[in-house]
Amino acid sequence: MKQPFPFSAIVGQDDMKLSMILTAIDPTIGGVLVFGDRGTGKSTAVRALAALLPQIQRVEGCPVNSEKAEDVPVWVEMADKKISAAPTPVVDLPLGVTEDRVTGALDIEKALSNGEKAFQPGLLARANRGYLYIDEVNLLEDHIVDLLLDVAQSGENVVEREGLSIRHPSRFVLVGSGNPEEGELRPQLLDRFGLSVDVTSPTTIEDRVEVIKRRDAYETDHEAFMVRWKAENALVRTQIESARQSLHHLKTTDSALTDIAALCLKLGADGLRGELTLLKAARAFAAYRDDTAIGRDHIRAVAPMALRHRLRRDPLDDAGSGARVARVVEDVLA
């Protein structure tokens, strides 16, 4: 199959690209929500992300991608537990998927052919230690959303049905995309996404022409195009890897914490998740920039994407939450 479109070849869309890079640096930020019209490159960016992520060490053949041999769940029958490197899993959760496919269920094949009661892992198992991507997340049925919320919170998938009692770790970065005109997300799910970005088509004609040129080259002259962008992709990947290393040595000053708290207070963002996410995002951004401490610049850059979806809805404000955050950021960090 064709390799996905290279991440670094996406024209513009800096917010979207940055948010994805930040979650790659620090997966605990908790996912990205991308809202925008059709044809603005949402799914292209997610598919491209997979090629960009550093590899993970995992037990070969383990359905939940365990890191160490002793982490492999007891219900998995495996003879030798060899550890090798593999790409970070990026798993698609399609609309209309059944609960069984998501959580896993009784393995009907094994039950029928061998009469065995075995567990067939679902998408949540495959996405462990990786990414779970939901396109058109706002059209996802409520009972699947509930299920995801539960697992995202506990980091563990528990299956109790059809005589099975199974649990396995399921920690994943949730990436959702959708078109806001077709429906909105429940606040509970909205809050679960660490970062949220709005994408629009490029506004300048030069950018638009560049989009078409690159896409055309990707389709008509595939090999050469991939070679051309390989180096740039590798650069971003190295940046992500080194940022992951330096993340733990970054200093968090008290003044940065005060700034963050003041910002969230002024915006009236519900709960403490806003503060934590903003702190993590600012830290990841500082690491990405190869700076040694979190400064106001970092906070300013990531505040809109970390906070815009956490504001209480104001039915009379049409300016959009991003603009509101930006206004308050200018006030507080002036």
């Binding site: 004609i205 078409i212 055309d216």
Partner: peptide, 28 residues
């Protein structure tokens, strides 16, 4: 493909209010 083709198609898309990047690619 003459150089100005893509430019022309992009401009047509803008004046018709078409945001999607897929449209001009299909047109091309």
């Amino acid at each position: 493909t003459p150089d100005d083709t893509i430019m022309t198609l992009s401009q047509i898309c803008i004046s018709l209010g078409i945001d999607s990047a897929r449209a001009p690619i299909f047109a091309l």
